[in-house]
Structure formats: structure tokens, C-alpha cells
Amino acid sequence: MKLLQERVKDRPAGENLIIRTAVRLMIPFIQLYGLYVIVHGHYSPGGGFQGGVVLGASFILLALAYDLRTSLRFMSERVNAVLGNVGVLIYTGTGLLCALLGGLFLDYSALDRILPLGPVEWRSLGIFVVEVGVGIAVMSIMTSLFWDLGSGGEMDEGL
């Protein structure tokens, strides 16, 4: 018992073979599931926000099983910030484009003036684009929230 405690204490916190391997095998499927939830938002429950949470959870899982540095290697802080801004930009950009083309904010049928596909198709496509934007933004914000809270803002050592 004592020997075991010493052994676990000496080891750095991310060095657990079982948790590492299990998480490593799971993460690609989790990411694909998150993308699936975003893409199929208008046929099944879910959509941008839920899919973004699942995507962000995959990076959080990586940080939990290994450590913060490893998760930063897969998704650097700069890329994360850019992705968050791009997500918000997609959302507001679509809305503003609708408003500029003569509709209301996020009134997708106005987009019919660019490419005449019919207002119903444009509505479905517009919801899809907005959901992708929301998903990207939520993922990036979840991940950076976890990084900042887990490391106390220092980003070198953490949970």
C-alpha cells in the first residue's frame, strides 16, 4: 500500500498508461461525433451549440488524459483564438449579409438575390452555415476556458 502510494506520487500526473490509451482510441470518434451533431443539426436534436460542446470536450479530454502541453500541441492557442473569431464572424456575417440584401437580420430568404435557389433552400442552407459558425465559436471558447481555468491563466502547468 505504502509502496504503491509512493510510486503513484513520484509519477507525473499525466503518465497513466490505461487512461492514455483508452482516451487516445476514443478521441477521433468523439470529434467525428461532434461534427456529425453540427452537420445534422436540422434533422436530429443538437446543432451548433451541442456539437461545439462535444468538440470542445474532446480537447478537454486530451488535456485531462495527457497534460496541457500535449493538448496545446494539437490545437495551439493562436489557432484557437482565430477559430473562435472566425466562428463569430461567420454567424454575424451571414446575418448582416441578409440585412444588407434587404431582409431582416438572419432572414435567409433574402439571400435568394445572390443565387436564385428558392427561399426554402436558402433557409435550410443559411441555418446550416450559421450552425457551423456557432459550433466553431463554442468549441474554441470551451477549449480556451478550460485552458485558462485549469492553469490559472499561466498556461504552463495545470490540471
Binding site: 500500500m1 504503491l4 502510494q5 503513484v8 497513466n16 490505461i18 487512461i19 483508452a22 476514443m26
Partner: peptide, 24 residues
């Protein structure tokens, strides 16, 4: 998923209990 995740969670909780010294 349950088949992979459940033993992993059990293992993690066991090790945490060992670290904080819960006496068996």
C-alpha cells in the same frame, strides 16, 4: 463506448482514492 469508458473511469477513481489515502 460504455465497455471502454467504464473501466477507465473506475481505474481513475481508484488511483485518486489511493493518492488521497482512503484506507481499505
Amino acid at each position: 463506448f460504455v465497455f471502454i469508458a467504464s473501466p477507465t473511469a473506475t481505474h481513475a477513481v481508484t488511483e485518486a482514492a489511493l493518492i488521497i489515502g482512503v484506507e481499505p
